[in-house]
Design a binder for these strands. Structure first.
Length: 597
RNA sequence: GGUCCAGUAGCUCAGUUGGAUAGAGCAAUAGCCUUCUAAGCUAUGGGUCGUGGGUUCGAAUCCCGCCUGGAUCACCA
């Protein structure tokens, strides 16, 4: 904001002229004035007392008078304790209003071919089971981040690494082969990912039975696991897969295909997408080659048993296995390979991994490995580490059936939205299809906002027994505010009133109106902050505050029905600006806004 | 045990680089629809900011100790 640097400069000038001390404008502590106080900007005077050698109130008074003379936009001031509250002139705020009201791209910076390229990896599912609430948080965060990063003027590539190979998928395959009786999504009517997930659960059940029997016969738990015929069969299947056994490979392709068609439906419903998808089955061998190359370059070393390791003790970490004794890849190997492919495919300036905080150590190691292997952005990779979603009873466990399924949850939300909406009866006149679209918008708005408003780094709890709210600090509240604004336009239009180009600079503004403009003018800074610290929650909380503020304004002021033409014009423009900021802010969370609800 | 993260109202969460009387929502209670959408607005109650020190004009925020919870340290992914 230009006005902020003007004030800071003016403060520095005042300190010099009044007290003869040198301070830099950047060191001036300037903040938005608290809502319950009069004023728009606040200068904290405590740090300036050393220069003034006066008490806080006197110093504030000196500075206030000086700034009021020095800055034409400052219309008045008030000193309370050690705080100098400056009031800007109404015409200043009206200028801000006129400059922003018709800006549809408010808060969004365009990118061009020279803008930094940021690649964002998110979702990254395993192909042995359907998506659950934990994945929802990942997907929503990843998608929202991509929008926020792009709104900050970067080029963005959304990417997904699908973990489509490994022992987990072999378990599902084996169980299907043994007990599936040829079931398909078509024959059962199940979504493919759910069908495959059922066999993953089935495997675990059978395995547990087997284990229990072995323990009964006197083996320890570890021995039982090692001796388990089922587990052995699964491991053999993995080896067959790596050897490209045609039968195993065909089954693998078949089951993955089912899973992908299931995922596609879930992703679509969730409203997320990708620009480039990588598959672990393509990348793990590249990773192996990279490691062997690193071995040649003495970056890594081989042990007597033939396994390959990285020694990271000089980096304050441990030694890390990269290739097993039998030469096969581990998880880390695969990530190195994926990074290499991405590096070849794109001129990446920054790589962001949206992955849960349980993998903090993994990414610390990955950054060092990539750096050692010479990938430029390696050591600067960003692990966007988010917290777990927990149930009131604790962690979700796929195999124990305590997960909240993504598809089920979205269906439940839509049902609730439909029920509530019908009860309120506000969509009369909409076709069945139009109304259904609104229910979905609201339901997903509720879900997405619920997830995104929480600081991503923190764990969050979700109680499936208590459905997600539609009142208060929620997505629908914000959507409702937007719909309300659209309704005002309809009302105005019906009265033959158009939204004006600009407001008259002489019109008076209420405190609430000024407050709204202050918030609007702060939007860009909020987007920048959210981009800097990678936090959709900052956008969410801001948009909520704005919507709340708007609703108060709405209640105390007539808008389309205001008689005074100048006031009406000014208020309609405020609506315009607020509506646009809500829309753009929600866009950054991947949330749509309805025209009516 | 080492490393990392978290602890704010009954519950779910905010709280900018240290700033004013720590804020919302939910839940509870009492009001507001002949006026632009009541998914809204207003009011009331609710706090030892885990705890003990320290730094200073000033600490929920920074530093140290402790308590509690979680994650991680695999030839799992």
């Amino acid at each position: 904001m230009i006005i902020e640097s003007q004030i800071k400069t003016s403060v520095a000038k005042a300190v010099k002229e009044l007290y003869g001390a040198e301070i830099t404008p950047e060191s001036v502590q300037l903040q938005l004035t608290r809502k319950d106080m009069r004023g728009d900007y606040t200068v904290v005077v405590f740090p300036l007392l050393k220069a003034s050698k006066k008490n806080p109130v006197e110093t504030g008074g000196d500075l206030g008078s000086f700034i009021q003379n020095d800055c034409s936009d400052v219309a008045g001031f008030e000193v309370i304790k050690g705080f100098l509250n400056l009031q800007l002139s109404t015409s200043f705020w009206l200028g801000v209003l006129n400059a922003n009201a018709h800006n549809e791209a408010i808060g969004i910076k365009e990118s061009d071919e020279n803008s930094p390229l940021v690649m964002i990896e998110y979702s990254s599912p395993n192909t042995n089971k359907p998506l659950h609430l934990g994945h929802i948080r990942n997907n929503l965060l990843g998608y929202s981040l991509s929008r926020i990063v792009s709104a900050n003027g970067n080029r963005v590539v959304k990417t997904n690494i699908v973990n489509d190979r490994g022992i987990h998928i072999c378990k599902s395959m084996l169980a299907w082969k043994k007990w599936g009786e040829g079931q398909t999504p078509e024959s059962t009517g199940l979504k493919g990912d759910h069908l495959v997930g059922n066999y993953y659960v089935r495997f675990d059940q059978e395995f547990k039975k087997e284990q229990a029997a072995l323990i009964e016969s006197g083996l320890s738990k570890d021995e039982a696991e090692a001796k388990s015929p089922l587990m052995k069969e699964a491991r053999e299947m993995l080896l067959s897969w790596e050897a490209h056994d045609p039968e195993v490979y065909a089954l693998w392709e078949q089951m993955n295909k089912w899973v992908y068609s299931g995922f596609d439906v879930t992703y679509k419903k969730m409203g997320v997408d990708f620009d480039k998808i990588y598959y672990e089955s393509d990348t793990y061998k590249v990773g192996r080659d990279m490691v062997l190359e690193g071995l040649d370059k003495k970056v890594f070393y081989r042990r007597e048993d033939n396994s390959v390791w990285a020694d990271l003790q000089n980096d304050g970490l441990d030694e890390k296995l990269l290739l097993r004794t039998d030469g096969t890849s581990v998880y880390m190997t695969q990530d190195v390979g994926t990074a290499k492919l991405r590096y070849d495919d794109y001129a990446i300036d920054k790589m962001v991994y949206v992955v849960g905080n349980e993998q903090n150590y993994h990414f610390k190691v990955l950054a060092i490995l990539l750096d050692k292997l010479g990938l430029e952005w390696g050591k600067d990779l960003v692990h966007f580490s988010y917290g777990m979603v927990e149930l009131p009873e604790g962690k979700m466990k796929s195999r124990e059936g305590t997960v909240v399924d993504a598809d089920d949850l979205m269906v439940d939300m839509i049902d609730t939205a439909r029920e509530m909406s019908k009860g309120l009866g506000k969509l009369d006149g909409y076709s069945e299809e139009e109304a259904e679209k609104v229910y979905e918008t609201i339901a997903l708005g509720a879900l997405k906002y619920f997830i995104l408003k929480v600081d991503p780094r923190k764990n969050m709890t979700f109680d499936p027994k208590e459905s997600i709210d539609f009142n208060g600090n929620t997505g629908p509240f914000i959507q409702y505010t937007y719909a309300r604004i659209q309704s005002i336009y309809r009302k105005a239009e019906a009265k033959g009133i158009a939204i004006p180009k600009a407001a008259n600079l002489n019109v008076e503004m209420s405190d609430k109106e000024v407050q709204l403009m202050s918030m609007i003018s702060n939007f860009t800074a909020v987007v920048e902050e959210a981009g800097k610290v990678y936090s959709p929650a900052i956008i969410a909380n801001y948009v909520y505050d704005l919507a709340k503020e708007f609703n108060q304004f709405y209640h105390e002021s007539p808008i389309a029905v205001e008689e005074d033409e100048d006031k009406r014009a000014m208020r309609l423009l405020i609506c315009k600006a607020v509506g646009q900021v809500i829309k753009n802010g929600m866009w950054m969370m991947g949330v749509d806004v309805p025209e009516r609800m």
